[in-house]
């Protein structure tokens, strides 16, 4: 199914004359979970505000006009703002813009509060909630209006583990409804677990990742290994693990080595493929190999020369089962 895309193009944003954001081109699919990662000051919050229409880009575009985005998106801040009043008031207020009947509204309130495990606190004053509860309430409030795009700024910052897991669960549930969620986080594991796409930001610019990232599911192979199958079933790879819930496999570029012929090795995964692209990266080469799926590997210039690798070369891709990290 062809989905609408948010296309960010030639985007620039400044605070006090210094660039905080500069993105030449970025396509974000809708209906999926997109995660922005990066250190503090990398421009994540600014980008999220641009995507939710709260800020207008100074140059370039973010897919739609700010007015349209503001209609479609709801943003939850890193330190959320809760209205003075009860837990119920907060959600009721968010819903008051929609023309929903009071019965239906009551039902929505109970549903989202139940999801956020706040139902027992429905009449508590928002100011008396704990940090984790406040985050959950802010998320429940945003979920209640069921926006096309949900934007969460650091939803896992400074909260307890239970709240963290609960929020991940809520985000995961939402993904099944086919609506977009865009969030930023420092938590790599949460990002890998949730994201359909991860974008790394550094000093306002997009950074290339240094790992291969697949969504899929696992099947038990035998006592020692489990088999990870990508969603389009184009390839299955072996990994070590113990859990059937894994949805993501991550293989670092540097954990992959190439060989020009099939070799006997302790690495459990050996895939045949063709080099489709080569890109110099400092003193190394980023080699893209199509072996049913696209895999990237970082190879030294020395090795590239030794095997005279070029686009079109037939190679074998080797990596250990333990190099496949499942989330």
């Amino acid at each position: 199914m062809d989905r609408e895309k948010l296309i960010l193009s030639k985007l620039k944003f400044k605070y006090d004359k210094t660039d905080v954001l500069s993105i030449d081109h970025l396509e974000l699919a809708t209906g999926v979970i997109t995660v922005f990662m990066g250190s503090n000051g990398s421009g994540k919050t600014t980008l999220l505000k641009l995507l939710s229409g709260l800020l207008k880009p100074e140059e370039g575009t973010v897919g739609f006009s700010s007015e349209v985005l503001r209609k479609r998106a709801v943003m939850v801040h890193q330190v959320p703002y809760l209205f003075a009043g009860s837990v119920k008031y907060n959600i009721n207020f968010a819903l008051s813009g929609n023309k929903t009947g009071s019965k239906k509204r009551e039902k929505i309130i109970r549903t989202v509060l139940d999801q956020a495990d706040l139902l027992h606190l429905i009449n508590r004053k928002s100011s008396t909630l704990s940090g984790g509860e406040k985050h959950r309430l802010a998320l429940a409030r945003a979920i209640a209006v069921d926006p096309e795009i949900l934007i969460l700024d650091e939803p896992f910052a400074h909260i307890d583990t239970r709240s963290h897991l609960l929020i991940e669960k809520i985000i995961g549930n939402r993904a099944t409804t086919g609506k977009s969620t865009i969030l930023s986080t420092h938590s790599l594991s949460s990002a890998f677990r949730l994201a359909d796409k991860i974008v790394h930001l550094d000093k306002g610019e997009i950074l290339d990742p240094n790992y291969n990232f697949f969504k899929g599911f696992v099947k038990k192979q035998d006592d020692r290994f489990i088999c990870f199958i990508t969603d389009d079933k184009s390839i299955s790879i072996l990994s070590t693990g113990y859990n059937n819930d894994y949805r993501t496999a991550v293989i670092h570029y540097s954990d992959i080595f190439l060989s020009v012929e099939e070799i006997a090795t302790s690495a459990q995964n050996q895939l045949k493929g063709t080099v489709t692209a080569m890109k110099a990266k400092e003193d190394q080469f980023l080699v893209t190999i199509n072996c049913g799926i696209e895999l990237n590997a970082l190879i030294t210039e020395l090795s590239v020369n030794k095997f005279t690798l070029r686009t079109g070369s037939k190679v074998f891709v080797n990596f250990k089962a333990s190099a496949v990290r499942l989330y």
């Binding site: 503001r70 209609k71 709801v74 943003m75 801040h77 330190v79 703002y81 968010a94 209006v145």
Partner: peptide, 14 residues
């Protein structure tokens, strides 16, 4: 007032 307040209101279309 915290800047989050007007932003939250904007976000909810208020």
């Amino acid at each position: 007032i915290r800047p989050e307040l007007p932003e939250t209101l904007n976000s909810f279309g208020v």
